[in-house]
Computed example of a mutant assay.
Amino acid sequence: MDIEAELNPVAISTMSPGRLRALRLQSELVEALRKTDRRVYARWGVRLGRRCVFCGVRRVRNLSSLIAAVGTFSVEEARLAVTAIRAKDVRSHVRDRSALAMHRSMSVASRIGRSTATIATALYRNPAETAPQLMMLTFGFLTGSGGLDGNGGIPDLDFQLGIGHHRSLLTHSILSGLVVETLCLGFIDLVCTIADKLPEDRDPIWDVLVSRGNALVAAASTGLSAGIAYHLGVDATLQPAAYHDLPFSMPIEGHQAVMGANAAAEGVDAMKRNNSVEV
């Protein structure tokens, strides 16, 4: 790439190395895109559409499973409570259910501990492979959530997208996670598709994306979904406010329930995908 052909020497001399590299990547990508046949784009577009449908169906399926599990648990708990009341044995019922809840909490903590140990071991044994994915997972979470305060991130892009108001259903729902994941997968697919059209003296990052892009993008998109779920969870509980583009009105508790359901659905989806991320 000949940056001097696009920019004057004074402008180049004032640019940071990161900015110059970004310009190089952009130029190489544009060059490859121009050399690619339109029929290749058409096939890529079909794959992108299929990925979008698959990601959407998977989220709906996970949400349905979550709702069914919560419903079954609630019905069973109500049945046991009624049985205890009729038998006038409420104290034993509370004790038994508390013990079960404690046991389940310890099981979850144990699983988290084992997962953390597994990641630490992988990071120690093979840092070159594990560290980039862990970094992408963390970067994705921070980008999706906006930080631990739940302000900013992907959902709050409704401020910049010209939607006209905050708390849009387009950004504060599983739709944002669906779009982000589809774009991530579509981008790496596009890079692999046009790789042979890139310049021979291309930036090394392209070869990394071709060889390890799927794993890195999977980690990044999983982190993004986890971050979006966290952001929606904060908005549904600690920072409650109404959606602004629903076709009907309902009390604030209804808005919180809808946002909370979206947070749970995106979180469950991220958790299940994380099981397949090789860290």
Rank of each mutant, 00 (worst) to 15 (best):
L238C: 11
A242Q: 12
G260P: 07
A236C: 07
A241H: 14
L238E: 09
A236H: 07
L246I: 08
A257T: 08
L232Q: 03
D245P: 03
S221E: 12
D235Q: 15
H255Q: 10
Y243G: 05
A264Y: 03
P247H: 08
G254A: 01
A229K: 03
D235E: 15
V234D: 01
I228T: 03
A257W: 08
A236L: 07
L224H: 03
A263M: 03
A242S: 15
P240Y: 07
E253G: 04
A242H: 09
A242M: 08
T222P: 07
P247R: 13
H231N: 15
Q239P: 01
M250E: 11
V258Y: 11
A261G: 10
A236T: 01
G223K: 02
P251Q: 11
L238R: 15
N262Q: 13
L246W: 09
P240H: 06
G227D: 01
L232Y: 10
P240F: 03
G227Q: 02
L224Y: 02
A263I: 04
I252L: 15
H255F: 04
L232T: 06
D245F: 10
M259I: 07
S221R: 12
P251T: 08
M259Q: 08
G223Y: 11
A257F: 14
E266C: 01
Q239R: 15
S249V: 10
L232E: 02
N262A: 00
D235K: 05
G227K: 04
A261Q: 06
H244Q: 14
D245K: 13
L224C: 09
I228C: 04
A257V: 12
L238V: 13
A229I: 04
A257R: 14
H255K: 04
A236K: 05
E266F: 03
A263V: 02
S225W: 00
A263C: 04
A257P: 02
H255P: 05
P251N: 11
A261R: 03
A229L: 05
N262M: 11
Q239C: 08
M259P: 06
G233S: 04
A261S: 15
H244S: 12
S225T: 12
P247G: 11
S249E: 15
S221M: 15
G254E: 06
G260L: 10
A226R: 08
I252E: 11
H231V: 06
H244P: 00
G227T: 02
G223C: 02
V258E: 06
E253W: 12
E253M: 08
